[in-house]
Design a protein around this nucleic acid. Sequence first.
DNA 1: GTCTATACCCGGATAGAC
DNA 2: GTCTATCCGGGTATAGAC
Lengths: 172, 172
Amino acid sequence: MTRTDEILSAAERLLAAHGPQGLTMRQLALEIGVKAPSLYKHFPDKAAIEAALQERALRGQSEALAHATPGLAGLASAYRAWALRNPHLYGLLSRQHLHRDRLPPGVEDAAAAPLLRETGGDIDRARALWGLAHGLVELELAGRFPEGTDIEAAWRAGLEGFQRPRREGFRT
Amino acid sequence: MTRTDEILSAAERLLAAHGPQGLTMRQLALEIGVKAPSLYKHFPDKAAIEAALQERALRGQSEALAHATPGLAGLASAYRAWALRNPHLYGLLSRQHLHRDRLPPGVEDAAAAPLLRETGGDIDRARALWGLAHGLVELELAGRFPEGTDIEAAWRAGLEGFQRPRREGFRT
DNA sequence: GTCTATACCCGGATAGAC
DNA sequence: GTCTATCCGGGTATAGAC
């Protein structure tokens, strides 16, 4: 494992454990047993580290979705599970600015592909499905649902609208 | 206008103009022509100011939804419009911790009422609708949709699934 | 590529005089 | 209820020796 990877792994650990506020150059250096200024020999600035973390997150999410149980319910379940298991990594993708310019091309599309596939290539429905999943996850992570809420029931209710066939008489 | 209200209005202005990072006790004091320590004569700490702002935000959102054009499309449009017009206020409700303990009872439910009404009292579908709206708004605000995306089409596609009747043969 | 030392700026919050 | 002065902590980042 190169030092660069070591830094990123430590950053991931730090983010997971203490959230975005806990990811500082000082703490990061402390975590890998080095002094803060040394980090700048490996990354030009903090934004570069965040960008690298976003790339990792997108890849992880892609893989989780790609290996989901086939079908709408399976995909949704995989989406939610990954987000709940990596709440701060998920937040890094949605709550922080996405450093598109520092991202290798294709990673973003790769994460979206499973959703697009599920809607049969309908881009509008894919985006709506993304919105539904993203919204429910964010509300859950933010603790906006009251204690004891049946969140799975909300998912089922929302996914009902995405069952085929949508337009009557149309069949694939 | 009391000094307390003056502080909150200035805080709202600051938040709208420069985002959460721009809302600091120093800037807030500067905005109303006073020194920072004076603010603590009106609010115990910064969290109290944020809580008051959240209450204002919830009330504003409630009113916007209550005055929406009747029907699913009208409600959705009002939800989106309010969020786009008050992006940082919206973010204060979803991206920051909701200070429920400092919130007057009822304000949170009041904001949710129009959605629940739209789904005919079905709480699960109301939450799903909330998730859809919240997710699409967050994705739009975060700039996650590519340039030129037809966001309204995504909304239409998502709302399709919420058209009645949902369960076949059932009618109100 | 690591270190020490440090610059620089910012944050929230308090003490005590008036 | 306002002020001045200040505490204390924290952040990103750089210079220059080794």
